[in-house]
Design a protein around this nucleic acid. Structure first.
Lengths: 332, 332
DNA sequence: CACGCTGCCGTGAGCGATAACGGAATCACG
DNA sequence: CGTGATTCCGTTATCGCTCACGGCAGCGTG
């Protein structure tokens, strides 16, 4: 590869100034149609492509957005990514992807490099950072939208599912099916969504006049194996459990496995309910009763909010709280 | 947000030149330890962060890589992304993510913006572009590694699973289980992997002295629904089919659904075999017999190859062909 | 015919960093 | 004590582009 073609090459070849070429590139200012098409032809012939770095340096705009999430291999997040990429692309933005694998240090690092890259905005999913740390890091970025996480002062745009209602609704359903000893596999301790679900879980139990037994609530890694081992421990310690609400569908499927391994029938002995309704939920045996939320839409609308936050900062932050929907299948 | 801190601010504050600050930033040249720590302290205090754009413009290196794939929401690709992100991050590179959703025009567009962004390299997964078009586009990029796709002249680094062996092995297995009317749901027509699998499929049949019936091979969209409807059509047209090899596990699960809907027992009436061994494969009923390949490793090693292609271009392209492994479960 | 407008295009100064030199101290040493 | 080699740091020119001006035709107008 030789030196890349620059705007100067185009200008020289066309016998015009740099500025004129720049004008046709950006459709700015008046230009005679002939010179315009002449320059366009030369651009085409030379295979010129504007250098986004130089452009960004001059304009203070990169048309790049950051996408930070715990785990792109988790179907919940990969669906968000899918929606986000789609929306970003349509608006002419690129997406920088970062995985934090539930590690706060990596999250901080990701936010740092995004700041260095001078992205125009950030879509931050399920941040595990404490409030003040998060505030400090976000102050380096021009605009951010939080997914499944809230933060006040400064108020940020947020899109999330109503995790409290989600858990409450699930527990109410289990109660209506005459389950009385309902456990909760709560996911990562640092998860904002997890604590909200725990809240909804407790509220629903209290409303039914059932005492909340802390030994029925257990944190776990939000994956298959995490759910499986947590369910093992839970069912060993408390054989009387007749229902398990899970942090997400992966955990729920892990619980399903544990039940099968321990000879507990689902749903006869133990009812299992998940959250998210990922594709997998409908395909396991027994099919999973779960709380549905539209991940792709979250990504899509999240980017929409972000673009608005970038282009009309004076409009102030928005907040969208999506109501999950109970999907009853055989597992409960 | 006020103006960002620049290297000039740091230099002024420290009473040194720009170059000196730049030196401590890059650990280049000799610097007195005291000035060094002095500058470091000021950088810390001011919250200075080097502008990656400016740096990239000056050094002709962006420390960003492109990741282009058909569909990040597909578990096969999201696992690759997971591995790639991990490897890139460790090496100090960022990743720009693009989804093409099987659309060649979008793929071309993605390659274009990556060229404009002046990424240092590209990991291109399952490109659906014809050879010459692909060559033309890639000539704009400094280095690329192809995943599950080959290209000669110029020879590029490639990492892929041996799709031909994959299909051959699967068919041989089915033959060994006394299946004789073996169909193939072949995936997207433009898929390189798909044609290789078709080749392996045919070879295995020929080797067994079985004539290849073209009506048994059907393209399909590489998702659940695609597999489902293709299997429906197939089994209606050819009720004598006693085994189905599928483009990937998603298609296979779709085929499972179709069988169930049509009252065909799996594996008694119809054996189903998938490819990839995504997580889902082990969790459906019946569990899927499939050809395992390690996606995360592909992403990881792909980035490794890419970094080598970037830093030691004289070493020439590498080629890694992974041998898939038959995983026998209940579906066949 | 002088005047102001509008259409079209060029000039110079950044944007925030690094590359490539150059130069002033300090030091060892014959 | 002169002299080269180190050590440490500064100056200037780019990188490739856009911004804010300014300038010069050609036109209509009073």
């Amino acid at each position: 590869m030789t030196r890349r073609v620059t705007i100067a090459d185009v200008a020289r070849e066309a016998g015009v100034s740099l500025q004129t070429v720049s004008r046709v590139l950006n459709n700015k200012g008046e230009i005679r149609p002939e010179t315009r098409s002449h320059i366009l032809a030369i651009i085409e012939r030379l295979g010129y492509r504007p250098n986004a770095l130089a452009r960004g340096l001059a304009t203070h705009k990169t048309f790049a957005l950051g996408l930070v999430m715990p785990d792109i291999a988790n179907p919940f997040f990969s669906a968000i990514a899918r929606g986000a990429e789609e929306a970003a692309r349509q608006a002419g933005y690129s997406l920088l992807l970062f995985n934090t694998i539930e590690d706060p240090a990596r999250e901080v690092e990701a936010l740092g490099t995004l700041a260095a890259q001078r992205v125009d905005g950030l879509l931050l999913c399920s941040s595990r950072l404490p409030d003040d740390e998060l505030r400090r890091r976000l102050s380096e970025l021009p605009a951010t939208v939080l997914v499944n996480r809230e933060l006040t002062e400064p108020a940020l745009s947020v899109i999330r599912v109503d995790n409290e209602a989600e858990a409450r609704c699930a527990v109410e359903f289990l109660l209506s099916r005459a389950r009385r000893t309902i456990a909760f596999l709560a996911g990562p301790v640092a998860s904002h969504g997890g604590s909200l679900r725990a809240l909804g879980y407790r509220r629903a139990l209290e409303a039914a006049g059932i005492a909340c037994d802390p030994t029925l609530v257990r944190p776990c890694i939000p994956h298959l194996d995490g759910g499986r081992s947590a369910a093992h421990a839970l069912l060993s310690a408390r054989p009387d459990v007749d229902a398990v609400l899970c942090y997400n569908d992966l955990v729920a499927v892990g619980a399903l496995q544990a039940c099968s391994e321990m000879g507990r029938r689902v749903p006869e002995d133990v009812a299992v309910v998940g959250c998210d309704d990922i594709m997998l939920a409908a395909l396991v045996t027994p099919p999973l009763t779960t709380m549905r939320s539209d991940q792709r839409r979250m990504g899509d609308e999240g980017i929409g909010m972000l673009l608005r936050a970038i282009n009309q900062p004076e409009a102030g932050p928005e907040k969208i709280i999506l109501q999950p929907e109970l999907v009853v299948r055989a597992s409960a």
